[in-house]
Lab assay of single mutants.
Amino acid sequence: NQESVVAAVLIPINTALTVGMMTTRVVSPTGAPAEDIPRLISMQVNQVVPMGTTLMPDMVKGYAP
């Protein structure tokens, strides 16, 4: 099972992602793949992402898996 990126903390809208904001988990439906964490760092979210929420590609500005 592939791990997806999950918010480790509450991420406010327009916040640039840091490694400490993200964790990985096997979830369904799958979100952004765990191996993309290095690409996701410094990208901004376009909505509030509550802690424990799977990071879906459409939540991150300019990100395409």
Score class of each variant (00 low, 15 high):
N1K: 11
N1R: 10
E3K: 12
V5Q: 02
A7S: 03
A7N: 00
A8C: 09
A8S: 10
V9L: 06
V9A: 02
V9T: 11
I13C: 11
I13G: 03
I13E: 14
N14W: 15
T15H: 05
T15P: 03
T15S: 10
T15K: 04
A16D: 06
L17G: 06
T18D: 07
V19W: 15
G20I: 10
M21H: 08
T23H: 08
T23Y: 10
T24F: 09
R25P: 08
R25E: 09
R25I: 08
V26E: 07
V27L: 02
V27H: 02
V27W: 07
P29M: 07
T30M: 15
G31V: 01
A32L: 15
A32M: 15
A34L: 04
E35M: 13
D36P: 03
I37H: 01
P38T: 09
P38D: 09
R39Y: 11
R39S: 06
R39I: 12
R39K: 13
L40Y: 03
I41W: 00
I41F: 00
I41V: 14
S42P: 01
M43D: 02
N46M: 09
N46Y: 07
Q47M: 09
Q47N: 02
Q47V: 11
V48P: 11
V48H: 12
P50H: 12
P50I: 09
M51L: 11
M51F: 05
M51N: 05
M51E: 14
M51R: 13
G52D: 06
G52C: 09
G52Q: 04
T53C: 12
T53R: 11
T53S: 14
T53M: 12
L55C: 07
L55M: 04
L55K: 02
L55D: 02
P57N: 04
P57A: 10
D58M: 10
M59G: 02
M59N: 02
V60D: 05
V60C: 06
K61M: 13
G62L: 03
G62I: 05
G62P: 01
Y63G: 03
A64W: 13
A64C: 15
A64H: 14
A64Y: 14
P65L: 09
P65M: 10
P65T: 11
P65F: 08
P65K: 10
